[in-house]
Design a protein around this nucleic acid. Structure first.
Lengths: 244, 244
DNA sequence: CGGACTCTTGATTGCAGTCAACTAAAGTGG
DNA sequence: CCACTTTAGTTGACTGCAATCAAGAGTCCG
């Protein structure tokens, strides 16, 4: 049995969603095998038929939609431990592109495997549903970001969110973590132009909220940044309970 | 057995997601009982514990988040046949408010009931997952709307989307349907101000794309409106297939 | 009849986009 | 090994879409 720190990020993450036994964790670990490597770039282009669910084990990925007029909107980000589709997804044509933002190690989970894992243990089932609800909650918050927050607030909110998401899988050191994204990618995430992302970042740096150099961010005052960006961590900690 | 037209909107909708037998439809019909009525206003405020999943049978509802600074963002719309949460949702504190935009008739589905319906028939299971994926796809498209489309495009896209969603449950007559929303509500959906929604609507009316009076919309040229707003119906018709 | 909504219109403001130029770093190939 | 290209980040000038502020009209309702 692996030590707690060696566990896959997927298992580490799902521990937040249900009280897992060793058997449960073994089931989940088996789901995340075998590993594949992919380079930076599209993994599943739009219109491809998805026959398996991608689970990110290492690296960052995103899902985006490309518009006819050349614009792009990133709709979600994936970090180690994240499932890129709902665990019960039916094989279907994708309406979006799944893309690796860095070289990625991933596992391809067959839909029937994920469902039967849920059937094998009610705690695994709870954990998988918890993970799905978490992804939804992140998506909703992203909509609020896009619709109602200013550029600086969007950036601040995102950095707060990634801080907690990465902490769940042990990828945060103090208040700093790697963030392998270009400003253009951030722009496509926030629905802004790259130029404006640049200026907003400078504002956040200039006001002392954070440092961002060489693809690593350090948040100097988490409380202040959360207040600035109206970040309420509640949506990331959907509390779990044993099913009755 | 009810005739095809009398079926609940939920069953009508899920028929698009899987080939249901009469037994399957009976299972789904039973899920949508008994009915409750609620008046216009919040159904489940943020922070409430959701112990059941709301299914809209008649009327319109939405989910929104309220920001500290008074702004509001609607993250999703629900019309008859829509499940307001993933069907396997765990009882948990909600991070958003579910609100009735009109008087609503709804059913409260117990999570275990939804899951056991899925367990009872693989076709029902497929249909429920299809519905969940559809809701996700709608959410992604909403993000694209918020992030990358102009005000006029957002409105146009939404009208095209509702046209198809309502058609699925038989609520469209020709190219016109009831749309019981104020301009302020549309503004909170699109991340715009009510004033700007008003002006954008006038632009759409003035250019002859649609009429909107007395809470009823008529789209005069669906093709033209789709082109204007870069609406691609593909995301709403995730094709289904029998699980292997 | 007053009050609350909803819709409309005008005037002004401001956040973010676009265009453009420049630097620096990093990869590529002859 | 060094031109050449590409990518990422930065800065300035200007533009424009949408927000804000404000006021008025029509409707519904108690």
């Amino acid at each position: 049995m692996e030590s707690r720190d060696d566990m896959s990020p997927f298992v580490r993450k799902l521990r937040h969603g249900a009280r897992l036994t060793e058997d449960d964790e073994a089931i989940l670990t088996r789901l995340a095998e075998p590993l594949h490597r992919v380079e930076r770039g599209d993994i599943l282009p739009e219109g491809t038929e998805a026959r398996s669910i991608v689970l990110i084990v290492e690296g960052w990925a995103c899902r985006y939609k490309q518009l006819e007029n050349g614009q792009r909107q990133i709709t979600s980000f994936f970090v180690p431990g994240d499932l890129c589709e709902p665990f019960g997804a039916v094989p279907a044509l994708t309406d979006h592109t799944l893309s690796a933002l860095t070289p990625v190690r991933l596992a391809r989970v067959a839909p029937h495997a994920a469902r039967s894992a849920a059937g094998a243990s009610s705690r695994v089932e709870e954990a998988l549903w918890w993970d799905l609800l978490l992804a939804d909650a992140i998506g909703r918050e992203h909509m609020v970001n896009l619709g109602r927050r200013s550029a600086v607030e969007r950036l601040g909110h995102f950095f707060c969110e990634m801080h907690l998401r990465l902490e769940m899988v042990g990828l945060v050191d103090q208040s700093s973590y790697d963030i392998p994204l270009t400003q253009a990618e951030l722009a496509d995430l926030f629905g802004l132009s790259a130029v404006h992302v640049n200026r907003s970042l400078q504002e956040l740096r200039g006001s002392g909220f954070l440092s961002l150099r060489d693809r690593r961010i350090t948040i100097h005052n988490v409380g202040a940044l959360r207040e600035l960006s109206m970040f309420d961590p509640a949506y990331l900690s959907l509390q779990h309970r044993v099913r009755t």
